[in-house]
């Protein structure tokens, strides 16, 4: 309860701090690049792609890349920026301060990234001039929200685990797990956010990917659970990431380099 009353303070403060021209420029850039890229593809192809292909393209670029990039830029340096700026000490000596900062910054990352995903998805669907645009947008919007909620927690945890090399650790993690392992039909990919989002896309778009043949390899790649199961798993993973980050923050000692000099 004590932490809960402090979270809005962090959220509002960080939002105000973040509302700067460079940050807004990044936001716009991330919003614009998926539709821009798809517009070029559409122009080169000369005709509108079928709805299934359009949905995959929008999924890869918007909830996949734009949202992931946005939350990566927001959530990963949440702790390291405070440590590098030597401002962490002021937060650490407040009751429940570290946890409030963690959750407040998590909400900032989510709330900045969801509009990026929504605008880029909507624009992408429009430029592709494909069939079932409203349905595709609805599916992509749901994936955007889930992507931002999950990836924010994931990158926040990576930033807390490796605060001194947060951005590098975040990129390495994303490449190895969310890009590499998520594409491998093995048990490991079940632990990635990308796998869950992909399964939801397949489920909601009613793609025929041969699951009916009960191929175990395809099942490991596209999943054979319900959408509710995948959403539950994503939310569980999100809670797990946040809980792990909170526990680390509680028990690890974070002091700026100069302050640990004896």
């Amino acid at each position: 309860m004590n932490t809960l009353v402090r979270i809005p303070a962090v959220f509002l403060f960080e939002w105000r701090r973040a509302s700067t021209a460079p940050r807004l420029a990044w936001m716009v850039a991330l919003m614009v690049f998926p539709p821009l890229l798809l517009a070029l593809m559409r122009f080169t192809a000369g005709s509108a792609p079928p709805p299934e292909v359009a949905a995959i393209l929008v999924y890869v670029l918007s909830p996949g890349v734009a949202c992931m990039m946005s939350v990566f830029l927001w959530a990963t340096p949440a702790l390291s920026a405070e440590l590098e700026g030597r401002s962490w000490v002021y937060l650490a000596v407040r009751p429940h301060g570290p946890l409030a900062v963690l959750l407040g910054k998590y909400l900032v990352a989510v709330s900045w990234s969801i509009p990026v995903g929504l605008v880029s998805s909507a624009s992408a669907v429009v430029v592709l001039t494909t069939g079932r645009p409203l349905y595709i947008f609805a599916v992509e919007s749901a994936l955007v929200v889930l992507s931002c909620v999950s990836y924010s927690a994931l990158f926040l945890l990576v930033g807390v685990i490796a605060p001194k090399r947060a951005m590098v650790a975040g990129i390495v993690y994303a490449i190895i797990f969310e890009v590499g392992l998520a594409m491998v039909p093995a048990a490991m990919n079940l632990l990635t956010v990308q796998y869950r989002l992909r399964c939801l896309l397949v489920d909601w778009m009613d793609f025929d990917v041969g699951l009916g043949s009960e191929s175990p390899v395809l099942a490991m790649y596209f999943g054979n659970h319900s959408a509710a199961w995948h959403i539950s798993m994503l939310l569980l993973m999100t809670c797990g990431y946040l809980a792990a980050a909170a526990i680390l923050l509680r028990y690890r000692e974070f002091t700026a380099a100069s302050e640990t000099d004896v």
Binding site: F13, R16, R17, T20, G85, R86, S87, W88, V89, Y90, A256, S258, E259
Partner: peptide
């Protein structure tokens, strides 16, 4: 604290 660590932009 001994180190400054203030937010310059507020």
């Amino acid at each position: 604290p001994g180190s400054e660590g203030m937010y310059a932009d507020v």
